[in-house]
Simulated scan of single mutants.
Amino acid sequence: MDLSFSFKIYSSAGSLPQNWDALAIENIFLSKKYLQVLDESSPKNMICNYIGLYKNEEIVGLVITQMLTLTEVSSFGVNKSCIKSKLRDFVFKNFAKNVLLVGNNMLTGQNAFIFSDKISVTDGLSILKKAVTHLKMEFKSRGKKIHITSFKDFTIEESKNFKLEGFKKYSIFSTQPNMVFTNLDFWKTEEDYVTALSKKYRDHYKRARKKSEMVVKRQMTLEEITENNPKINELYLNVTKNAPFNTFYLAENHFANLKDVLGDKFLFYGYFLDEKLIGFNTIIVNGTSLDTYFLGYDNQHQKDKMLYLNMLYDMIGYSIAKKYSKLIFSRTALEIKSSVGAKPIEMVGFINHSNQFINRYIGKLFRYFDPKVTWIERNPFK
Rank of each mutant, 00 (worst) to 15 (best):
S159D: 14
S339L: 11
K145T: 09
F92C: 02
Y313E: 01
D260A: 03
S81G: 13
D203N: 09
N242T: 10
K276C: 07
K86R: 15
I59C: 05
P177K: 11
E165D: 14
K211R: 15
K382S: 10
H147W: 02
T133Q: 06
N281P: 02
L295F: 05
D192E: 11
K84G: 06
N379D: 13
L258Q: 12
L327Y: 09
S85I: 05
D314R: 04
D304Y: 07
M214V: 11
I64K: 10
K144H: 05
N242Y: 08
K303D: 06
W187A: 08
S150G: 00
P230C: 03
S126Y: 12
Y201Q: 04
I114L: 14
V102D: 03
I232R: 01
E234K: 05
F329K: 01
T122L: 03
G14T: 11
D89G: 03
T149R: 02
V180H: 00
R88A: 10
S325F: 00
H254C: 09
S325K: 13
V132P: 01
T182Y: 06
M311F: 01
L3A: 11
A13Y: 12
T65R: 07
N253A: 07
I345Y: 03
K97H: 09
I320R: 00
E57K: 14
Y271V: 04
L312Y: 03
P177D: 15
F294A: 08
K129P: 00
F181N: 07
S116K: 13
N242I: 07
I316H: 01
F92H: 01
N286C: 11
L307H: 06
N104F: 02
T65G: 11
N105F: 06
V239Q: 14
F181I: 09
D185W: 05
K382Q: 12
W20A: 00
A13M: 07
I9T: 12
R202W: 03
Y205H: 13
S11G: 09
M306K: 12
E335D: 14
F115C: 08
L87P: 00
A112M: 03
S41K: 05
